[in-house]
Amino acid sequence: MKKASVWLNLKRYRYVYLMLAIVLVWYIAFAYAPMFGLIMSFEKFSFAKGFFGSELVGLNNFKMLFSDRYFVQAFKNTFAISFLRIVFEFPIPIIFAFMINEVRSKPFRSVIQNITYFPHFFNWIVFGGLIGSVLALDRGVVNGIIQLFGGSQIDFLGDSRYFRTILIVTNLLKEVGWNSIIYIAAIQGINPTLYESADLDGVNRWQKIRYISLPGIAPTISIMFILFVGGVFTQGFDQVYNLYSPVVYDKGDILSTYIVRTLKEVPNLGVQAAAGFINSVISMLFLLVSNWVVRLMGQESIY
C-alpha cells in the first residue's frame, strides 16, 4: 500500500481505529501483560523486585511442584474429573432433550423446562449451599430418606469416596436443562415432512428417533462434543471450590482450586504461577486439538 493510501485509509476509518484502539488497550493491559508476567514462574519472585527484577531460578518451581504430593494429586484429579464429565455430563442432556421433545402436554413440558433451566443462573455459592443442606447429616432430606428405608447416615460432602459422584450428579442437576436447549432446538429444526412421510409408512416412534431425529442432530452433537472436550479441562472451579473441604482434597482438588487454596494457605507466588502455567498450557492443548477437529470436520469453527 502506498503511503498516501495508508493515510487516506486511516482518515476514512478514524472512528473505527479509535474504537479498535480502546479495545486493544484493554487486551494489552489485562490479557497480555499477565502473560508476560508468567516469567515469574521461573523466578524466586519477590514483589518488590517485580516481574523482571526477581532472581531467576530456572525450572526449580516446576520441580518443586512435581515433588509436591498435593499438586500431583490435583493434576491427576483434574484429568479424572474431566474424563467423568465427558462420559456423563455430555450425553445426558441429549437424552433429556429427546425426552422433553416426546412430551406432548405443552404445559407439562414448559413447567419442566422452566424448572430445569432455572438453576443454571445461580453460582455454586447459592446452589452449593442448598445442596449442602439437602445432603446434611442430621437434617438433610437425602439422609432422611436413607434412614426411612433402614439405611445409615452418609456424610456425603465429608467422604472422599462420594465426592466425584456428587460433583457429577449435582452439576447435571444444575445444568442438564440448560445444556439440552441446543439439542431441543436442533430436533425441532428437523424438516417435519420427514416425520410425516414416516407416519405414512407406519414407522414407530423408536424408529423415528433412530432413523430421523438422531441423524438429524448428529452434526450438532459432534460439534458440541468437541466444544465440550475443549472446555472441560478449565471447568469446575466454582463448583469444586464451594463444595469441598480438606477431607475430600484427595479426590476433589483440581488444579484451579489447588492454586487458589495454596495461595491462601502458604503464598509462594513463583510456584503458584508455575502451577497456573501448567494449567494454561494443558487447557490450550485441549482447545487446539478440539478446534483442529472442528475444522477437519468441515465445520466453520467459532474461533
Binding site: Y27, F36, M40, A273, G276, S280, V281
Partner: peptide
C-alpha cells in the same frame, strides 16, 4: 484477540500486575 481465548497468564501474574 483470538489468542487470548486459547492462552492466558493465569491468576497469579494477573493479581501481581
Amino acid at each position: 484477540i483470538i489468542f487470548t481465548m486459547f492462552f492466558n497468564g493465569g491468576i497469579i501474574p494477573l493479581y501481581i500486575w
